[in-house]
């Protein structure tokens, strides 16, 4: 094994050790998440054909591109609805992980992290709808993220009120959500 490989291996081992000390991550290949992972890959295939944001000095260009990307996504999946990606097959697995984190032994700290993100209540989301511009990004507890399937760069999990949301971060639209996921 080369020096570089040894270093890489030690990084993986040390991070795994830290993660394990906090909250043991679930197996990402858990069959419960397979369906979700496939749906995300399908979404990304669709997304690959659409434009992307680019670095610019002009905020108006960022906004225009965001709106164009969001419009293109809506056109590409006009009949998208809640449950298309968080399918009935994978939702129980997500609920198990989310509720495990929010009701488990470290729940106090996890809930504190969410509170510190200054979440907004009383917001109603819709698939393909815009993630409301005035909303904070909210903070997703890192110990929860450790136990969920990893997402590609353009997607992120969000917590809005009691809903668990999959957001397209460049387009700022709601890709899907699990209503009432957070107890």
């Amino acid at each position: 094994m080369s020096g570089l490989s040894l270093q890489a291996a030690s990084l993986v081992i040390s991070w795994s050790a830290i993660a394990a000390a906090q909250t043991p991550p679930l197996n990402e290949q858990s069959p419960g998440f397979d369906d979700f992972t496939q749906r995300v890959q399908q979404y990304m295939k669709l997304r690959k054909a659409l434009p992307n944001e680019r670095t610019t000095k002009r905020q108006d260009q960022i906004v225009d591109r965001r709106l164009a990307i969001a419009g293109a996504i809506r056109e590409a999946r006009p009949s998208a609805k809640q449950g298309d990606i968080f399918t009935p097959g994978c939702t129980p697995e997500f609920l198990k992980v989310i509720r495990g984190a929010l009701l488990g032994s470290k729940a106090v700290n996890v809930r504190k992290t969410i509170r510190q993100g200054e979440p907004v209540i009383g917001v109603h989301l819709a698939v393909n709808g815009a993630y409301p511009g005035h909303l904070p990004r909210t903070t997703v507890p890192p110990t929860l993220l450790l136990r969920l399937p990893r997402l590609p760069d353009k997607l992120a999990y969000r917590i809005v009120d009691h809903d668990f949301v999959l957001q397209d971060t460049e387009a700022r639209i709601v890709v899907d959500f699990i209503p009432g996921a957070l107890p």
């Binding site: 610019t56 990004r137 909210t138």
Partner: peptide, 15 residues
């Protein structure tokens, strides 16, 4: 760096 009140797309703002 980004805070909870920031838009993730601020990362594309050159300044």
């Amino acid at each position: 760096s980004l805070g909870n009140h920031d838009d993730t797309n601020e990362r594309f703002y050159k300044f």
